[in-house]
Computed example of a mutant assay.
Amino acid sequence: MPLDVPTPLSGLRILVLEDEALIALDVEQLCRDNGAGEVAIASNLREAQQASQPYDAAIIDVMLDGEPTFDFARSLEAAGVPFVFASGYDQLDEIFKGFPDVTLVSKPYAGDDLVEAVAQSIRKLARSAG
């Protein structure tokens, strides 16, 4: 891809909250391939909460070792950080009730679907803020 063509995640700082290492590495590479400037991986909530860098967007697995990530997602929402959920779970009524405007990308997902969902969450937040 030519350097002067913007990509969906051009220059963005992305947090990937994912406890399966291979998936996390794939998502990191996917973000970098789509222009992300920085990608941080957190495999548990403690690591995610310790991340000091402000992020432009996040990709959050719904469950990490059986622990739901909804409280962390609410903290991102309160901070104005756009995010998407990525999950292999199919019983996710709580997401739809608690996060009606957040996109859920079901695993296994196509890379383009995930990147577009992240880009769309950023655009949606920008429109609502402006």
Results as ranks from 00 to 15, higher is better:
L3N: 09
L3D: 11
V5R: 14
L9N: 13
R13L: 00
I14P: 11
I14A: 09
I14K: 06
I14H: 08
D19L: 13
A21P: 11
L22I: 06
L22A: 06
A24D: 04
V27W: 06
V27N: 04
L30T: 03
C31E: 14
R32T: 15
A36N: 04
V39C: 04
I41L: 15
S43F: 00
E47F: 13
E47Q: 15
Q50H: 11
A51H: 15
A51W: 12
S52W: 10
S52K: 15
D56N: 11
D61I: 04
M63P: 02
L64S: 03
L64H: 02
D65L: 05
E67I: 10
F70W: 03
F70H: 04
F70Y: 13
D71Y: 00
A73V: 07
F83Y: 11
V84L: 05
V84M: 01
A86T: 14
S87G: 13
Y89V: 02
Y89P: 11
D90E: 08
L92E: 01
K97L: 12
F99T: 07
D101L: 02
V102S: 02
L104S: 02
K107G: 00
Y109A: 06
Y109C: 10
G111M: 05
L114V: 12
A117L: 06
A117Y: 12
V118T: 04
V118P: 05
A119N: 06
S121W: 06
R123G: 06
L125M: 10
R127A: 11
